[in-house]
Amino acid sequence: MSRDTEDGATPRTQRVPVGADPTKPNAARVYNYMLGGKDNYEVDQILAHQMLSVAPDTRTTAWFSRRFLLHAVEFAAEAGVRQFIDIGAGIPISPNVHEIAQKIEPSARVVAVDYDPVVHVHSNALLGSTAGVTAVLGDIRRPAAILEQLRAERLIDFDQPVAILIVGVLHYIMDDEDPAGIIATLRDAVAPGSYLAFTHATVDTHADFIDRSSSSTAGSSAQPRYRTRDEVAALLEGFDVLEPGVVTVQDWLDDDLPATKLVVLGGIGRTV
């Protein structure tokens, strides 16, 4: 048994969603609410406001994380990448990945991957008619299965560079679910000149926020695992890490943005 399981984290098999459960918070729906979206339930709003009661700037952190995602897409597209895999894509909110990528290169292809069947339905409804955009059901904790599907359906050409986006996801992966192994599997599958952009909440977050968010989400897909900066930085092993490195998402965007109680790091790596 892993340390996280001993400390109360829910084992992998119990964390896989089987459909919409309005009695348990969902990370994608909480994030949607924080960004002003309408695709969420009361239980998600309650958790969001519990977080906001401890850290009123959490909505600001969500916005910073979203801007980091779009910045990474723009960066990769301007570097010539024409394929994007958004893992843990969540419920689409404009501007979305494809809007940024296709503004730079109209032929850009985007695959939005999420493991929640309800999120997948939303994505299909909102993105299904958009040229070059495909929503697929897939679990980041099973990266080989995602890669196999993308190859089988010829959604991604892995002989060409691709940008993999994992924003707001990895801190929901428990230690026994092997986040480093997940990243390594994805890294080894892509061509040189590919990019990985990710975010991750850290233990530098305000202690009351960690306690509240952990206790309120126990047993749900929104249960977090906060990690140290060194643990987060280690996830980019094997990549050429772009400057300014693995730093707060604020530092990726602007030197003058305020610190927030929820501390989220961002990093971008390039395969060589």
Rank of each mutant, 00 (worst) to 15 (best):
A72N: 11
A259S: 14
A131E: 13
D7G: 03
L265K: 14
W63K: 11
P25S: 10
M1C: 14
K24G: 12
S216A: 14
S123R: 04
L127G: 03
Y115M: 13
G267M: 00
D86T: 13
D230P: 01
R229M: 02
A62K: 01
E177G: 14
S220L: 09
A191G: 09
D204W: 08
L257G: 02
E105G: 07
T23I: 04
A189T: 09
S220W: 09
L137G: 00
M174Y: 12
G37H: 11
D240E: 02
R270A: 08
Q250N: 14
L242Y: 07
K261E: 13
V121D: 04
V118N: 10
V264P: 10
D86C: 11
V190W: 02
V264Y: 14
L150M: 03
E177T: 08
G168Y: 03
I173D: 07
D114T: 07
F158A: 00
P95W: 02
R12E: 13
M1G: 13
I182N: 05
I85H: 03
G128Q: 13
E231V: 01
A233E: 11
P92G: 01
A222W: 08
V203G: 12
V121A: 10
L147N: 03
I183W: 01
Q149M: 05
A72H: 11
F198A: 15
G193F: 04
D116L: 04
A197Y: 01
V249M: 09
A144D: 14
I268P: 07
R29H: 11
L165M: 01
Q102G: 02
G128F: 14
Q250C: 12
D21N: 15
F84W: 01
G181K: 15
R270W: 03
V133E: 04
R67K: 10
T217C: 08
F64Q: 08
L242G: 13
V133I: 00
M174E: 14
E78F: 12
P17F: 08
D139N: 08
T58I: 05
G36S: 00
V97H: 08
V119I: 07
I182K: 04
T58R: 05
I93G: 15
R270N: 04
K38T: 04
V272Q: 15
D178V: 02
V118H: 12
V113E: 10
L257T: 02
A180G: 09
P22N: 14
V118L: 11
L257S: 05
R141H: 13
I93K: 14
T61D: 10
A201S: 12
H200P: 04
D208P: 02
A125Y: 10
R109S: 05
G245T: 03
L236I: 05
L265E: 07
L235H: 08
P92F: 00
Y41F: 14
N40C: 14
P143Q: 12
A62F: 00
